[in-house]
Amino acid sequence: MNAADLPITPRALAHVFGEPVHAFPHDLYIPPEALQVLLTEFEGPLDLLLYLIRKQNIDILNIPMSQVTTQYMAYVEAMEACHIELAAEYLLMAAMLIEIKSRLLVPKPSVEIDFDADIEDPRAELMRRLLEYEQMKLAAQALDALPQAERDFSWVCVAFEPEHIELLPDVNLVDLKLAWLGLLARNRQIQHHVVASEQLSVRAQMAHILRVIANGRYYELNELFDMQQGVPLLVVTFIAILELVKERLISVTQYAVLTPVYVQLIAAKSSEA
C-alpha cells in the first residue's frame, strides 16, 4: 500500500476534555471585551514612569515632562478603556505630572536674574523619588535572583541512627588538687599521733601501686592510699602516682566533673582497645 492510499485524518482545531474538535460550533460567540491582553504589568505609577523613561533611554535627571506626561496619560486612558480599575495612586501621579508640566510651561517673569540663588526645578522631587525607587527595585531583583528554598531547590532530610560515643572528661590539675585535699581532710579525722622514724621510697611505692592495679581494672584513687599509715605515706603515694602518670604507666580519668578519680594500668587499657 502506498502512502497516497492512506486515509487523511483532518487536523483537530482544539481538544476539549481530551476529545478532538475539528470544526467550530455554529453557536460559538466570544464577546470582544472577553479577549484582553495586558502586555506589561506595573507595580505602581513610579514603576510605569521608570519603564517609560528607561525604554526611551531618557536621562532621569533631565526628564522631558511633555513627552513623558503624554505617554503616561495614554497608558492611563488605555487602562480605563479596558475597564480596568485604576488605583488612586495612578490618578494622583497623573495630576502631579500635569502640575509639573504646567509649571514648566508657565513663562517666567522677566526680572533680574540672581545667579547666586538656587532655582528650584519642579521636577526635582519626582526625580528623587524615581532614583530611590529604581535603587529599591534593583535591590529587590538582586535578592530575588538569590537561590530560594522550594523555588530553586528543595530541602533533603536524611534520617540516620546517630552513634553515641561517650567522651570522658580529662583530669586536670584542679581535679587532682581537689582529690588530694579530700584525702588530707579524711586523714585528719582518723590520724593517730604516732612518732616513728621510717624510710619511705617513692620507687618502692610506685612498684606497689603497679602490683595493686596489675589486673587491669579501674581503681578509685582513694583505694590506693592507706589512711592508717599517716600523712608521710600519703605524700609518698601521691608523688608515686604523679611519677607513674608522668612516665605514662597509668592513666587517670573520671566520668564527670567533680566525680571520683579512677586509675588504670595503661598496658591493660591498650589490650582492651
Rank of each mutant, 00 (worst) to 15 (best):
M79K: 13
L210P: 00
V171G: 04
Q199L: 05
K177D: 03
V68M: 08
A87G: 15
F238G: 02
L92Q: 12
S201D: 06
F225L: 01
S154Y: 14
V194F: 08
N172C: 04
L35S: 12
P32F: 00
T70P: 00
L258W: 04
H164N: 10
W155C: 07
F225P: 00
R186Q: 15
N62L: 05
I113Q: 15
L50R: 11
L46T: 09
A140V: 01
D59N: 15
I63Y: 10
D170V: 06
F115H: 13
Q254M: 12
A196G: 11
K246R: 13
A196C: 07
V194P: 07
A256L: 01
R103M: 10
A140K: 05
P169G: 09
M227D: 03
Y75D: 05
A87T: 12
D114E: 14
I241Q: 01
L234R: 00
S201P: 03
R203V: 12
C82W: 00
R211P: 05
T253Y: 07
E272I: 11
F160E: 15
E77K: 15
V111H: 04
I239W: 02
V235W: 00
L183N: 09
I98T: 10
L178A: 11
A268Q: 08
L183I: 08
D116G: 09
D114M: 03
E85N: 10
D226V: 07
S110E: 08
P147V: 06
E134F: 06
Q148W: 04
L244N: 07
A95Y: 01
P147K: 05
D175E: 04
V236E: 01
P25I: 01
L265I: 05
E33H: 04
F115K: 14
R211A: 15
Q191Y: 04
E41K: 12
L200S: 02
A145D: 11
E41I: 08
I113S: 14
L210H: 00
L35T: 14
L244Y: 03
Q56S: 13
V235K: 05
A94P: 04
D27C: 03
P162S: 09
L242F: 02
F225A: 00
D226Q: 04
P25F: 03
A87Q: 12
L13G: 02
M73W: 07
L183S: 08
N2L: 09
E134T: 13
E33T: 07
V171M: 02
A142R: 15
L168Q: 13
V156I: 13
V236D: 01
L224N: 08
L131M: 13
L221A: 01
A95H: 05
I119H: 08
I165W: 04
R129K: 14
E99L: 02
W180E: 06
P107V: 01
S270D: 05
V261A: 01
I119G: 07
L126Q: 08
A240Y: 00
L146H: 09
D175G: 06
T70E: 08
L104T: 10
L35R: 11
A140T: 05
P32S: 07
F42W: 06
P7S: 06
F153A: 06
E19T: 14
V257S: 13
G230P: 01
M136D: 12
Y51V: 07
E77M: 10
L258S: 12
E43H: 09
D118T: 14
D116F: 12
M93A: 10
M96Q: 13
L210R: 01
L221V: 03
D59K: 09
V106G: 02
V174M: 05
V245A: 12
K101S: 14
